[in-house]
Write a protein that binds this DNA or RNA. Structure first.
Lengths: 166, 166
DNA sequence: TGCTACAGTGTTATTGTATAACATTGCCAT
DNA sequence: ATGGCAATGTTATACAATAACACTGTAGCA
């Protein structure tokens, strides 16, 4: 008995060319409106990250850049990542030491990120209820939040199905 | 105008000798009841981690072990950490690449961990409301959770006070 | 136009984190 | 005693991130 293929895990089935294009456009607008420069390297790194919804490691990005003739050194890529992080264009997935495009760039949100153990695809939510409850708990502790990091690992719908079948 | 010193961030003021002793006793009981061995190295690493509520890096632990004459190699420590993680005796703080003792060992919980940017002290909560809300969101995505990681960075009450004063 | 200041990038080297692969030891059940 | 297996030892290497300093190019301004 087959369930329908997951309609709800965005990475599963969508027009990724469009998705990526949107992200780049948004990035350009955001940088322009903030008076910061989306330079060639920064833009290229962002494009590479957006090639999929799987988090990319810094050295993976380095190799992809090398394959285009550039062959930059680690600091170059880390500086681009630092910029993209600072302007909310990508998220760092700490449990993977890797980076993924932010789906809510410019929206001032607190993200919860779901990561598939098997296919590595991710999806991002910004549920206020989670965020507020954590903020409330922090307040009770008299703790001053700078940043919330919520990462949920497990199986995406597609992979969970295959897993059940096996 | 001074607020009273944070009564609610546990790391601030408590009988740590007792706290640490309890943790070790619990670990022994848990291992015994599960028929697994809390060997000398594993126990030693756990003790070192419990010296404070600040997360310890693996190489930091290595140095502390070396100072006692042992001088083990990285895999030794990482294997001990792997064991302690697997049996719920410590948590890994991904945003720090470091490890901290679990305050709810044996209780089958999902932890939210608060980490102070300034003094590095941590405290752990297990709020079902946060956990359930995340589980609910996962269900809506048809995502099968294996593990939730919630890390909150910011200032603990004591450090926040000093910060305000400055 | 030319100067200055500073953001951005290049380069080299190093530090920090984690694991692969294989050898050895020691416990313990039969 | 011995065969099997968990635990540890050992060596080497992969992967992740940053320090420190040099160079370049662009924007603002005299």
């Amino acid at each position: 008995m087959m369930k329908p293929v997951a309609p709800s895990f965005p990475a599963s089935s969508h027009d990724h060319r469009h998705c990526m294009h949107e992200a780049l456009r948004t990035a350009e607008h955001l940088c322009a409106s903030q008076g910061v420069r989306l330079t060639a390297i920064r833009r290229r790194v962002l494009e590479l990250i957006w090639r999929s919804h799987r988090p990319s490691g810094a050295y993976e990005l380095l190799e992809q850049l090398a394959a285009e003739g550039h062959k930059p050194s680690p600091p170059t890529v880390y500086r681009a990542l630092e910029f993209l992080l600072a302007h909310g264009l990508v998220h760092k997935i700490n449990s993977r030491n890797a980076y993924v495009g932010c789906s809510h760039a410019g929206e001032s949100h607190v993200a919860q990120i779901f990561i598939c153990d098997r296919c590595s695809n991710t999806t991002e939510q910004a549920d206020d209820a989670v965020e507020r409850r954590i903020r409330r708990n922090a307040r009770d502790l008299h703790f001053h939040i700078r940043e919330q990091t919520v990462e949920i690992a497990g199986l995406c719908p597609r992979c969970a199905e295959q897993h059940d079948g096996a």
